Amino acid sequence: MADERDPELPGLLLRTERDLFVPLLREAADRDFELRTACPGWTVRDVLAHCGAALTRVVEGRFERGVFSPEANDRDIAERAGWTNARVVDELERGMTGAGPVIAASGGKLDGIALGEWVHAGDVREAFGVPGAYAGPGLDPALDLLAAVTRDRGTVPLTARLTGADGELALGAEDGDRERARYAGDGATLIRLYAGRPLTGTRYELTGARESELNLFG
């Protein structure tokens, strides 16, 4: 796992997820888009509309003030209310294909968007009842991107010892006044912790920090 930001990593994560996630969505029934997700108030369709809108803004370079606020997210979803589910998925697929180069050129400022898109794909898989919703082929690049995002945002310094992985993953910014927190558990649960997703049924050890201190997305 990388110790420094790789500018190509967000695009790799998005393309890896696209190739796995979009076919799942194409095969889903319309009623599946009505399922509730871990995101309060949002259905699967709402999550996908939000994701497609966010990536379209990245590709088109539209970053007006408050663009990713809760109010803006709700407007994006409302603007797509008349779209078919297929059109919502089409926009998402285009965004996952085209956003990588823009994010790569952002110097890290947009890396969190790629990570958030991957987490939202996990939200949808979980709503669908797919095992390992926040795991799969995208997990390792997602963990590397998580490390880069937490360093950039100066979060709590934490060292993660991941089940089945060699070595340790360093997250957060060094803080001479604070000892590094420690995490032991699997990578998917670590993602859940930082994404503020439900932890029911998981097993992990966290010392030196509170769960609430790790939440990247509020």
Rank of each mutant, 00 (worst) to 15 (best):
L199C: 10
T56M: 09
L115M: 11
G107S: 12
G201H: 09
H50L: 07
D111Q: 06
N215I: 13
D186T: 06
P198K: 11
G82S: 08
A121D: 03
G172Y: 12
G132K: 04
G154P: 06
R57V: 05
G136N: 03
A38E: 13
N73W: 04
T56S: 14
R36Q: 13
D32I: 00
G132E: 10
V47G: 01
L20T: 14
N85L: 10
R153Y: 03
L214D: 00
E213V: 07
V44G: 00
K109R: 15
L190W: 07
A173G: 11
G11H: 01
G164Y: 08
L143P: 00
D186K: 07
G100F: 00
D19C: 05
T200S: 15
G41C: 07
G138K: 02
R75K: 12
L146H: 01
E71N: 05
L115N: 03
G196H: 11
R31I: 12
Y183S: 07
L20C: 07
T189P: 02
G218T: 11
G201N: 11
P137R: 13
R197K: 12
R26T: 09
G41K: 05
L20E: 15
G136C: 02
F33S: 01
L199M: 13
D175R: 15
Y204F: 15
A148V: 00
D123N: 12
P137N: 06
G136K: 02
E117Q: 15
L12E: 14
A2D: 10
R197E: 06
S106E: 09
L145M: 03
E93H: 05
L92F: 09
L145N: 01
G218Q: 09
T163C: 03
D111H: 03
H120D: 11
D166F: 13
F128A: 02
G61A: 13
D90W: 03
L35W: 02
L55E: 00
E8N: 10
A86H: 10
E213Q: 14
A29N: 11
R65L: 12
G138W: 00
D19H: 12
G66F: 11
E8C: 01
R87E: 15
A2P: 02
D90K: 04
F217W: 11
G52M: 03
A99F: 08
E27I: 00
A188C: 04
L216S: 01
L145S: 03
